[in-house]
Design a protein around this nucleic acid. Structure first.
Lengths: 340, 340
DNA sequence: TTGTATGCGTTATCAT
DNA sequence: ATGATAACGCATACAA
């Protein structure tokens, strides 16, 4: 039998109300003597309050859910850590949920989180979405989305990255190096981030009077396999001299394929990634990529969520974070074929 | 106001007991008609049970705590995912806690987890430990440790890797390539894994009649910085032709330093890591390392924990996982200086 | 300054 | 086949 507030009350010869008050430091009108007496007994009996019972009456669990696609994606690894840091800092705990980009899994998680009475949810949605299904999901707690758009009804806050700008700058960088025939490998167009990145790519080309070649646009998933497979299939059938990858994992897969084909990066083909995950700077050649502050994204998302929960007013609903192009070794000036 | 079991009972003209039974599928002696009636009302009113209230009476939360040093260490990234997968599979949720190898943070987490009434805890302990302090911590829930030893009193299960063997094989591999003067960069000797890895190294040398040079043994932390700093300091002051690193991060740091010094891996110096994190195979040269199935370690740990919780008998208390040497490109035969 | 009593939403026991 | 009710451990309004 765990020791309860009643046991303490009995041992200290006070009421449970009094014990409760000293436990919660609401001791304005409690004599010093009793406070000490109660604390002594608490220590002696090794009493720990039962959060469940407390939450039953306070209607707060000091717990939030964090839902992401997959922590093994290095972008989310850091994001998760940022989320956890601010959570504990504010006295909250985190339920940890991976969806594998599966919407039904995501919805199942949301429901169990609600059953567990989380105060709120921070959600990086699955890549595959379905407005029809989402409309019907009843989410009775505050929800903040990060990095990815969703169609649930009651979103209380949004953290997003300026993906358009990141893609625009990455593409412009390639154009400035003389590339005109540029592949783009990007993720599902269900995702706003993917649409924005594609839009940034197109806009950059347009602004430089380069005609968009639709066959240069490849839509897939944000993993190494997509990059590898796509470049394996393309082989010599593409005249592209540069690739803009929707994220670093795709870039890694593409580089692997190119290496196997005997092509050198960046001499034969330039590559730009997106995310700037930990590995990016460790690769050979080190990857030119668009840096996203993923730790900060997780941190800010949960911070925003908790601020909402605690009714801090003048809390903005939406935060946009600016990405930044990091030029490393995987991009260089186009070879001038006519000179040879 | 959230809708409760009472609301459903009233609307369906039954008692709360009946509703509870259909919610929990204990419908052996409930008429089909009422079951349907109740379910209909539940759907209409969008009722979701309150786990807290349930847990109050059942004394189970279907929640476990997962405590690790840092999810950003790729070894733990995978481990965490394995843990989560088995948890949901068994109907549990996971509280996610990072300690940064800080024992006091670890203990604080354990206490809040207990307050939140987790059914059990899976703990990868901090690197820095203190038996005196640990003895006094009262852990009232089942605890399973993984990867790292602790001195808490009531450990119910242990998942460990055969670190001795891994280190022995890594070192033997280097010896077989002709190396005799081998550095070891390993983590805090508070940790059994570190002691075991050092022991494996020493034993391998001994078994090959190589005298152990104590100045070849460097103790530090399991991160890139330690590897880099140590090799920066050593420069030409070491005659070593090979390095065995306590983990891959240390190896990455060491490689970085060597590169800057103009030394080539493996031609000038061979390097072996430990863990086989995702990056290892992506580096240039690809890292020879000791593979640990980190996903599986997390998975098995939480599986063991839940089995204990659910009183599955004949559950072993301890599971040992065998690591495996993966030879890649960062090791080669020693240059025979006399031949030149 | 302290204590009494009620309710939070469920499950489970025992009646009916 | 169904219902009444006690309990789970706590916080809080109100009384004393």
């Amino acid at each position: 039998m765990r020791v309860t507030i009643k046991d303490i009350a009995k041992s200290a010869n006070v009421s449970t109300a009094t014990v409760s008050k000293v436990v919660n430091n609401k001791v304005d009108d409690i004599s010093k003597a009793t406070i000490e007496k109660v604390n002594k007994v608490i220590k002696e009996q090794n009493y720990t309050p039962n959060s469940l019972a407390r939450s039953m009456v306070t209607k707060k669990t000091k717990t939030v859910g964090l839902i992401i696609p997959d922590v093994r994606n290095p972008f989310f690894t850091d994001l998760v850590r940022g989320a956890e840091d601010i959570a504990v800092d504010r006295g909250y705990n985190l339920f940890f949920c991976n969806t594998d980009d599966d919407l039904s899994k995501e919805i199942r998680y949301i429901n169990t989180l609600i059953e567990k009475q989380v105060d709120g949810i921070a959600l990086a949605g699955s890549a595959n979405r379905n407005p029809d299904i989402e409309k019907d999901v009843n989410i009775s707690v505050p929800l903040v989305t990060l990095d990815r758009n969703v169609y649930f009804s009651k979103v209380k806050g949004i953290i997003e990255i300026n993906n358009f700008k990141g893609a625009y700058e990455a593409t412009t960088h390639l154009i400035n190096l003389g590339h005109k025939d540029i592949l783009i490998l990007v993720g599902s167009q269900d995702l706003k981030i993917s649409r924005d990145r594609l839009r940034g790519y197109k806009e950059a080309l347009k602004d430089n009077n380069i005609i968009i070649n639709e066959s240069n646009i490849k839509i897939g998933t944000y993993d190494k396999e997509f990059g590898k497979k796509t470049m394996d299939e393309l082989k010599c059938n593409s005249s592209a001299t540069a690739i803009f990858c929707g994220n670093d994992l795709i870039a890694i897969g593409a580089m692997k394929s190119l290496k196997k084909q005997g092509l050198n990066v960046p001499e034969d083909i330039s590559i730009v990634g997106f995310d700037d995950i930990y590995i990016a700077s460790l690769l050979t050649p080190a990857l030119t990529t668009v840096h996203q502050p993923s730790y900060e994204i997780g941190y800010k998302a949960v911070e925003l969520l908790i601020n909402k929960l605690e009714n801090k007013n003048n809390v903005s609903k939406s935060i946009v974070i600016e990405p930044q192009l990091i030029v490393r070794e995987s991009t260089c000036k186009i070879k001038d074929k006519f000179k040879i």
